[in-house]
Amino acid sequence: MKKLHENPAIGLLLCAGKDSKVVEYALSRSLSPALVAEYQTRLPDKQMLAMKLQEFYLLSAPEVAPKARPKKTINRI
């Protein structure tokens, strides 16, 4: 199946959803060159992604991020 000059085959499991913790645990024990990815049939909300990105930057570079202001309480409706 694999030709001599090729690298070992990679397996990609494409699922409709996943729990990152479960995936991490399963992959850390896997002895095969595999990866798990998710697919979506709708475009994501870009604004939501941008907010997540902002959070990510704040978490990964706290020294550059502006001093955190006291959290506002959000009234849930």
């Binding site: 090729e6 070992p8 990679i10 397996g11 699922c15 399963a26 896997s30 798990v36």
Partner: peptide, 27 residues
């Protein structure tokens, strides 16, 4: 990467046993 990439499709959320079949082919 100069390698084959086998894709297995699942229309449900990931379960650890899904990897079993894929690992089986790869091995």
């Amino acid at each position: 990467l100069s390698c084959l990439v086998a894709i297995e499709l699942k229309v449900t959320a990931f379960e650890p046993e899904h990897l079993g079949k894929l690992n089986f082919y790869l091995e």
